[in-house]
Amino acid sequence: MLEGKFEESSLMKKVVDAIKDSVKLCNFNCTEHGVTVQAVDDSRVLLISLLIGEASFEEYRCDRNITLGIDLESFNKIIKNGNSSDFLTLIAEDSPDNVLIIFEDKKKDRVSEYSLKLMDLDSDFLQIDDMEFDATITMPSSEFAKITRDLKTLSESLQIIVTKENVKFSSDGDFGTGNVVLKGFVDMDKPDESIKIDMARPINLTFGAKYIADIVKGTSLSESVTIKLADKSPALFEYKLPSGFLRFYLAPKFDE
């Protein structure tokens, strides 16, 4: 039996918004520690790893591991019906055919109850081992979203170059080029506005801008984004949740 109650439905709304355009069907694996999702987008380029830890819930109970095979498009239609400030409760039996989705308005005594049919999805789980990274950048998530959106207007490839003192986002297209250079800086009053660059080795990688555009759909989940880069390995783009994370892994482009 799974029963998980969120203080607000806004977290789940943002999570579904962040991943529904990249993956259509995915398993929400519920255990006593929380809910995890691992899925690869249709082009098999982007790997998504989500953990909504138990502490994200107002109340959480999951006596036996339960897998919820969910069509995110359908789930999104239901989730949109709730107000962001409503309590959101998910309830499912052991080996369930559907999941109950309950919104409770905090002021008025209004309860909305939906049932979503579940699907039987095979789970090809990918093993994500700890990786060594050459550089780690932590920066405001909205700034990363703006820079990548701006540079995508010039080219379908985004270059990220990290040296000792700065990180350069670069785009080189048919009609022109664009470069945005950031230096590390600490914002004492608003730490989330800081830009932190840890470089073990200089790195210069090129990514598909359309996949980065999918990744920045996670922006509303966290004030900051952490980008971890390693040569010829998938980059990690992480949005931290109050308890958990939404991680995107994207391999750089490189000449064969």
Binding site: V40, S43, R44, V45, L46, L47, D124, F125, L126, Q127, I128, S157, T206, G208, Y211, S233, P234, Y249, L250, A251, K253, F254, D255, E256
Partner: peptide, 14 residues
């Protein structure tokens, strides 16, 4: 033209 490798090339199915 640099190509975009698939992610399963880097993570093995467990």
């Amino acid at each position: 033209m640099p190509e975009q490798p698939s992610i399963s090339r880097f993570f093995k199915s467990s």
